[in-house]
Design a protein around this nucleic acid. Structure first.
Lengths: 230, 230
DNA sequence: ATCCCGCCCGTACAATGCACCGCAACAACA
DNA sequence: TGTTGTTGCGGTGCATTGTACGGGCGGGAT
């Protein structure tokens, strides 16, 4: 292998930035799910070798932390509504919408402490909405409770969504795929109430379901807020 | 390589069972977290080659589904208390306790539809607790809401727990590790309420926090239950 | 005794995260 | 300007992963 065979070293590579890395990672995740996000693929999308990235992040988990925080920027509403209840509702809804845009978010939400600037801004917004309406401990408890509900609800909705998508694209197919299993299970008679629920329950769309549960939780908060601790 | 060099074929291997596989997988997960659960390691623990397992499961995800369902057996209480509220509270508490015994559970809970027999039994217990106290749709909504809260709360608690454990074992160390970051972030003045919360909020133990939030959600349910839909 | 079919599970592959230096590029000095 | 010392970037390689594949063994049929 003489010099002549060897190509010139490529032009000094374009410098990277976290911003680009994050964008590439999110793009990959949106296209192919979280499992499509590998250090190599992200790097490849930026015409770089795998190890280039490790100057900007020190671990793949850090990359995931970064993209989660980035999505939190989408969650923060433009302006803050006056009513605490409306403020919390909007934040919850926007979180859900972000999770629908980025299905992979459900796997990450709540999985690690949220210390990024955008996530902290969201937390700040939640706290600020309730600030002054009760002692700080109650406010914290309220925010935690609502956040827990939102995380859990999004997770379950996403799980179902994926299950549906996995078995063809229609609910009909879903029925065909899991129907038999469910049917035989319910036929054992060991789950009478569940059976009744499946049979008699009216099908509600996920959005309404999310909204209703959220309202209930907000009702609970309202009680604690307006009626200061005894 | 003559016959003499070749070892006799090993004694016909002990037959496996899903039960053994599940037990081995849970043991590994308890010891080293979810990432310590690989098909190879589970198989090795049973003195088997990797592919032995694929007669009992068809995918690693299925193995995870199995261990989640297995843990649900720990969650089901021995007897059902009469009071719906007590029943739901106990189920939630037992779920949390299971998640503390098996920290990895938080990563799996709510991640996939729960179709296993034990998980369905848990769902049945939840529904049964409320059955008859309201129309079935309200009951479903109630169970979903409580479950969402439980999943989200456990996830957040686990995340914090892990963060603490990761940075040495004490809260002091945690303060040292994240303190600087938090301090500088709060010092920007962009998060006044959060700052106040960190500063003035009294530290509550996770168990109490979980219980309080749960009570709030149960309060909300109580309202919808006792006051039938208008 | 022989053949052949089915299924069991070891081997092998493509992919992963990231440790580990080799090398290129600059700084300092002669 | 030529030489050397040092630094840190990022390519190569390794250990590990999930599972496709099909070789070979056991048992049933002839």
């Amino acid at each position: 292998m003489t010099v002549w065979d060897r190509p010139e070293p490529p032009n000094r590579p374009v410098p990277l930035s976290r911003e680009q890395i994050i964008a590439a990672a999110i793009a990959l995740a949106d296209e192919g799910g979280l499992e499509a996000v590998s250090v190599r693929k992200v790097a490849a999308r930026l015409n770089a070798g795998p190890m280039r990235l490790y100057g900007y992040i020190s671990t793949k988990d850090e990359l995931l932390d970064l993209i989660v925080d980035e999505v939190h920027a989408e969650i923060l509403p433009a302006e803050r509504p006056g009513d605490w209840r409306e403020a919390l509702r909007i934040l919850a809804q926007r979180t859900r919408q972000a999770a629908l845009r980025h299905v992979w978010l459900a796997d990450l939400l709540g999985g690690r402490p949220t210390l990024g600037p955008n996530a902290m801004a969201v937390t700040e917004a939640k706290l600020a909405a309730l600030d002054g309406l009760a002692d700080i401990d109650t406010v914290l408890r309220a925010v935690d409770t609502v956040s827990a509900y939102v995380i859990g609800a999004i997770r379950r909705e996403t799980a179902n969504l994926r299950a549906e998508r996995a078995t063809g694209l229609s609910k009909r197919d879903w029925q065909r795929a899991f129907g038999p299993h469910m049917t035989t299970m319910l036929a054992t008679g060991r789950f009478p109430t569940l059976s009744k629920a499946v049979h008699d329950g009216t099908e509600v769309d996920p959005e309404a379901s999310f909204a209703t549960g959220l309202d209930w939780v907000l009702d609970a908060v309202a009680v604690k807020i307006t009626r200061p601790p005894a």
